[in-house]
């Protein structure tokens, strides 16, 4: 469904966000991407719908090659690739229903959007989406007046209104409390399974990734360092994804310089013993419901 072939992303300032990524994500899969802050998770996800233009290689979604330069082709692609954000990104001052209708933009004539007169078909889709995420009774409330969990549900409904083939989610539950995070993620998982949508989700919480994903991709320094089914993502593998840059960072801070290349290549005994407990702490931290 989504195919990366030797994809690079170089940011305008010269920073290499992704280097030589080759991946294939299948139809209907729920993939969690994990990795330290700055590993390139957001970059990877945003490359898929062209919010971040990739600079080398080939990126294909379905049958379409993502072409960051061609705006109208990009809009067409985006109409079937929905995106959910950590900060929900709803328009606070308008109603929940109108927020969901933003998801219909690509299917609505411009003049209808302009005067805010959506067709009954579009409204029907919007209401169905709201029913799926269980907040249809809030349809005419202002979006800003909802709780975080409800707002993220609005965002999911907005994406569902696009009738998407792919849902990209950039840390969708990082701003929510643990029980709400589980509920929202559970809803997303159910919907994704029911409708056969391919789902790529960035996550900081390992336990959530393990509980909800079919497959886990670990990233570090703009590269994929682990890729396998959730069962294969054992503690030691996860530690591998997190461990070395962590210790290298610590060493860099202590030393006050930026040379961490050699440490990534040859971790010392000390690195391993220091880093592993820190990672295990992260795994220990289960949600208390």
């Amino acid at each position: 469904m989504i195919k990366f072939e030797n994809v690079d992303v170089v940011y305008p300032n010269g920073y290499k966000g992704l280097s030589d990524i080759s991946l294939e994500i299948n139809q209907g899969e729920f993939v969690a991407i994990i990795g330290l802050s700055g590993a390139g998770k957001s970059t990877l996800i945003r490359a898929v719908n062209g919010l971040v233009p990739y600079t080398n290689g080939t990126l294909t979604v379905g049958e379409t090659v993502v072409d960051p330069k061609n705006k109208s082709k990009l809009r067409k692609l985006r109409s079937k690739v929905g995106m959910i954000f950590q900060q929900f990104n709803n328009v606070g001052r308008i109603s929940v229903l109108n927020n969901v209708l933003i998801g219909r933009s690509a299917f609505t004539p411009t003049w209808r959007s302009l005067i805010g007169w959506y067709g009954s078909q579009d409204k029907e889709v919007a209401f169905q989406s709201l029913e799926r995420v269980g907040i249809v009774e809030k349809a005419y409330n202002r979006a800003a007046a909802l709780s975080g969990g409800q707002q993220q549900r609005v965002a999911i409904a907005r994406v569902l209104a696009q009738d998407p083939e792919v849902i990209l989610a950039d840390e969708p539950v990082a701003s929510l409390d643990p029980p709400t995070a589980r509920k929202v993620l559970g809803d997303l998982r159910t919907i994704q399974r029911d409708l056969g949508i391919t789902c790529v989700v960035n996550m900081h919480h390992l336990d959530l990734a393990r509980d909800y994903a079919d497959r886990i991709i670990g990233m570090r320094n703009g590269e994929v360092v682990f890729d396998g089914p959730t069962q294969e993502a054992t503690d030691s593998v996860i530690a591998e994804v997190y461990q070395r840059p962590l210790s290298a960072d610590e060493i860099r801070q202590a030393r006050g310089d930026g040379r961490l290349g050699e440490h990534i290549e040859n971790p010392t005994e000390a690195d391993l013993t220091q880093a592993v407990p820190a990672v295990e702490d992260g795994i220990e931290r289960k949600d208390t419901v």
């Binding site: 067409k76 109409s79 328009v91 933009s105 696009q162």
Partner: peptide
């Protein structure tokens, strides 16, 4: 944020 969301939904 909301601008990005509209972009990501394929709005012109």
């Amino acid at each position: 944020g909301p601008l990005e969301a509209a972009d990501a939904a394929g709005a012109n």
